[in-house]
């Protein structure tokens, strides 16, 4: 099967050094690492939003050869920044996810519902709280219905219920065959992913199944904290069914 996303020797000077990875379809992958480790840079580079050296392939095709509109159909990126200067209604911002599809409205209603935004549909985005704005841009990424989803700290500003909903949704998308890459600060949640990437000072220092990668040793070296394992601090998180 063609990998969904491949990068080799991906380098952004000063921020990311020689990262190589392959993500398959139907994979739910977490990216963890301390502040400044390069998580956002990695996601932006993979999404083609930053000049980076090295090769990036989407579905086996070189990113440089994929035209802008086609990119919008294949990969969705949700950034950390959710500041809006103009008061578009929530519904319209989410509908922007359909730009690459000629504004065909498929999926907009579902995306609004998934992010619990139906009641806020007509509210100008400038009048939302920080967490609500993040739900709006995540809904916009969902509305693209792109098979590769990159979410940069989607739950950092969310309350616990909405955060769990995001994890549930990520799992659901992966089970339907999508590639979902999520950056996180909550290492405990990362144990529930299929696979974890660990970044430290711009380098990929861990890549594999969570329990194999996120060892007490690695957490000590990378995050400089002592970790003890508990089985389930996030009991509602759906685990992989197999």
């Amino acid at each position: 099967m063609t990998p969904a996303l491949q990068a080799s020797a991906l380098t952004v000077p000063g921020r990311l050094t020689g990262v190589s990875l392959t993500l398959g379809p139907a994979e739910l992958v977490a990216v963890v690492g301390p502040n400044g480790a390069g998580k956002s840079t990695l996601m932006q580079a993979l999404a083609g939003l930053l000049p980076a050296s090295g090769d990036i392939l989407w579905n086996g095709q070189s990113l440089a050869r994929i035209p802008a509109q086609e990119r919008g159909r294949r990969l969705a990126w949700m950034g950390q920044e959710a500041l809006f200067e103009f008061g578009f209604p929530v519904r319209e911002v989410v509908a922007q996810g359909r730009y690459a599809w000629g504004d065909d409205p498929a999926g907009v209603a579902e995306a609004l519902a998934a992010m619990d935004l139906v009641d806020l549909g007509d509210r100008p985005v400038t009048r939302l709280s920080g967490g609500e704005r993040h739900r709006v841009i995540l809904a916009r990424a969902l509305a693209t219905q792109a098979p590769i989803q990159l979410w940069d700290e989607p739950v950092a500003q969310l309350d616990v219920r909405h955060a769990l909903e995001v994890y549930r949704l990520a799992r659901q998308l992966a089970e339907r065959g999508n590639t979902v890459l999520v950056s996180l600060h909550d290492i405990r949640a990362a144990y529930r992913f299929d696979r974890v990437l660990v970044l430290d000072r711009g380098r990929l220092v861990g890549d594999g199944q969570p329990h194999a990668v996120l060892t007490a040793d690695l957490i000590r070296t990378v995050f400089r904290v002592e970790a003890t394992f508990t089985t389930s601090l996030v009991p509602e998180l759906p685990a992989r069914e197999d």
Partner: peptide, 23 residues
């Protein structure tokens, strides 16, 4: 106008949604 809407909410997000931001 449509592309301007996307651009007015951020260059990177516009690019990610399929706008050729450079052009």
């Amino acid at each position: 106008g449509r592309a301007l809407n996307l651009l007015s909410l951020g260059e990177q997000s516009a690019q990610s949604l399929g706008v050729d931001v450079r052009r």
